[in-house]
Design a protein around this nucleic acid. Sequence first.
DNA 1: TAATCTTTGATTGTATCCAATAGAATAAAT
DNA 2: ATTTATTCTATTGGATACAATCAAAGATTA
Lengths: 230, 230
Amino acid sequence: MYKSSSRSFPVYDSLRQAIIEQALKPGVKLPEDSIGETFSVSRTTVRNALVRLDAEGLVDLQPNRGASVAVPTIEEAHDIFEMRQCLEREVMQRLCKMDVKPVVKALKMHLAEERKYLDVDTTRSIRLAGEFHILLAELTGSKILANYVNEIVSRCSLVLARFAQAHSAKCGLDEHTDIIAAIEAGDPEQAIARMHHHLHGVQDRALLNPDDEEKNNVSEILSRYISQNN
Amino acid sequence: MYKSSSRSFPVYDSLRQAIIEQALKPGVKLPEDSIGETFSVSRTTVRNALVRLDAEGLVDLQPNRGASVAVPTIEEAHDIFEMRQCLEREVMQRLCKMDVKPVVKALKMHLAEERKYLDVDTTRSIRLAGEFHILLAELTGSKILANYVNEIVSRCSLVLARFAQAHSAKCGLDEHTDIIAAIEAGDPEQAIARMHHHLHGVQDRALLNPDDEEKNNVSEILSRYISQNN
DNA sequence: TAATCTTTGATTGTATCCAATAGAATAAAT
DNA sequence: ATTTATTCTATTGGATACAATCAAAGATTA
């Protein structure tokens, strides 16, 4: 849908990657000028990239106030995860109806890659874990479903960046293995159940934190200190 | 997600509406110059709107060749309808879990509106029929789900414009009534079944046409005449 | 005549420019 | 001392301008 030939694509792609990998954290300002300088392009070009990212929900583009990395609220966080459950459920449903042999083969190859970088390259490991879910969606053959999953997985990264502890981002390799096994068995019920359990785990580690919403909420944090000083 | 204060919004919104209502048919070129003239804005502004529409899949923006209304293939058409089934199923599921009273009230008000313009104002009638599905999604309270449904309903309009007969676009008022009844009864199974049936009907009328894909395919049409001339 | 090359006109891609706005810093007033 | 006005600066919104590209028409060749 987005042609890589344009000059704005590298800008879009880099920003996207940086946001997903949490190098650019929620709320960080994205001034057109400085971004244009780093990529040696004009503001016009940067703007195009920002508009696309805004449409995807990764960037918040406010009139006359510029762009910043989107800051999901706790309500949006739940909304995003619920939507993800719905979409990935559909992926499981469809995959189990297909000829699972080539599907399983592709998945196992990816799994090997995941295992290879586990405990070696954390950034890459997290990226691969996310791409596992995108691969699942792509294997259904539905471009639209794959697109939606891709989008929702990105937004989940944003949610994790906002609410989760550092280590809770990596989703379990074993659970990925179990999901593949269920698909290989052609058992949709089990595949769906395992995916649900897997995603629920990620969600819980993110949204049931002791810090929870207070993490970036100054007044909440300060309120804990008031009583101590009295 | 998209702020209406900007100057590009009216351009975006008008184009979108025109495409959905099939005033701009699939494949029609959208030159930046002439669009800018009609709205009295610069190409920069038009371009922004086009980028957004491209991201939504309503417009096809090809490098150095400009924008045109997207032309879904028959495969994409099926893909879009399948995705729609998935999303609207989720809507039914969620609505039935809620307090259905205010939901049903809002739906019945909308239905009255639909009935009012049936056989009176065809354009408005079709628009209202589409908005019924968007209203359903909005009533779940999930912004993201509502957004996706909105997008997929628009793309379904494109599919209808490409493949369906003129009259097959209007989706039945009675079926909408039945769906509301199922929600009112708090019966998710039935609500889902009725929605599925409803959407399947729309899909069939569109994609099981005698013309089918050949509608805009010159070589296919001409091939029917070759044998007659021999 | 058919095929390939060349030119031309129209349209897009992108940089630059100026006006408008927001937010900060300073000054004035209560 | 705290609030309210008033600059001032940084940044965005959007128009314009020019270079790059494409598609079609015309010219050239076989």
